[in-house]
Nucleic acid binder design. Sequence first.
DNA 1: GGAGATGTGTAAAAATTTGTAAACGCAAAC
DNA 2: GTTTGCGTTTACAAATTTTTACACATCTCC
Lengths: 228, 228
Amino acid sequence: MSKILIIDDDEELCELVSEYLGVEGFQTEVVNDGIQGLEAALTGKYEIAILDVMLPKMNGFEVLRNLRAKSALPVLMLTARGEDMERIVGLETGADDYLPKPFNPRELVARLRAILRRTIQESPDRQGERLKVDDIEISESGRAAWLAGRELVLTAAEFDLLRELLKEAGKVVKKEDLSRRVLDRELSPFDRSLDMHISNLRKKLGLRSDGTERIKTVRSIGYIYTLL
Amino acid sequence: MSKILIIDDDEELCELVSEYLGVEGFQTEVVNDGIQGLEAALTGKYEIAILDVMLPKMNGFEVLRNLRAKSALPVLMLTARGEDMERIVGLETGADDYLPKPFNPRELVARLRAILRRTIQESPDRQGERLKVDDIEISESGRAAWLAGRELVLTAAEFDLLRELLKEAGKVVKKEDLSRRVLDRELSPFDRSLDMHISNLRKKLGLRSDGTERIKTVRSIGYIYTLL
DNA sequence: GGAGATGTGTAAAAATTTGTAAACGCAAAC
DNA sequence: GTTTGCGTTTACAAATTTTTACACATCTCC
């Protein structure tokens, strides 16, 4: 699944790395100079590129600069040994990580995985995972909530209720909708469950630092998580 | 529009980051120690802060803890490389995200944007949710109203009624319309509810300082919030 | 102007809705 | 089996809205 582009003119090293990465479950392709490397990187076929600094025709920094004009493809740079590369690699060139030669192939794999993990984390399908409204933050998948950085201990119903209110913070949410979304049933005339959960939630959330109530009642309609 | 506070004692790095963020359309300000950082963060001038962990005078965690006592300002922490502090650093302390050093500026921007996206703060779309008419101000999303700066204690119906009148301040609003918009029903011949709410609202608003009535009656038509 | 018709102001009563403590039921954990 | 935790129901107090009732005000028509 993960296809890796290796741009390096040391064919022996490419061979070794390819093999090692193959064992680790990656597919690889190799090119041996900067121009070809840039072209290949721009095809969109790869998930990540390993890019040597010293290259024929176009050096690694140039390749990266040109690549960055058009693509956000993650790049791990292979650098000559030297300590202050950190800053240069990290900030100025736009690489995602670097590794000084000679390197341990295990470390190479670890860093590739780290980069992939980071970049996957930001992919759009994770948006909406976390929701933040003034000093409250919730993680939907983690079913956890924090108030001013401290975790709130909520029951399942309280969490769902808070989530639904925060999703529409600043807007009134009808009781019928809350009942359907939180309790998974139609609201019936004398069902006071929702009110109880609101009451308990209010107790756990407390008032804002300015003394205002977070969840206000809109009589005969529903509730609203207020925004200042 | 977005102003970013950078709290880091590495001046060279601050310079680089400022420049990069400038290109990406952010305004930045830099302070170099924890004490100053905390003070700056509390001014309310910023949309988000980038906070280094290792800082002179007060370390990043302390700054964050102190900040969280008073503010929900989004914070992205810069951490030392390597440790898997993800959950601990990320959320228990109240940070919105973290990034290990050295980092890639593109990733920094991506994370800043991600935080801002999920953070419902003072976003511009909240304009128009606040309504000001002479010495009265109301916040729709907060369902709160202030008279001369002091909060009015209004019931749901009173709030809705005031909102509808202020939305058309200086214009007569028909009783039928008020009934539909405030009480959510057609006005019927002997329904005096609206009149009662008007009466109660008048009591809470009081007269203007020049002795004039704020809400005037237009007989057989409706009511009007008068403009001086 | 005056009598009746119509509409408004508002106190008070009645009805409705909400807040919440406490009791209950049930299922999972022990 | 017993305990524990959670969602629900019950019960009653409190808050809010609606209705009622009556005093006034305003308009209309003569």
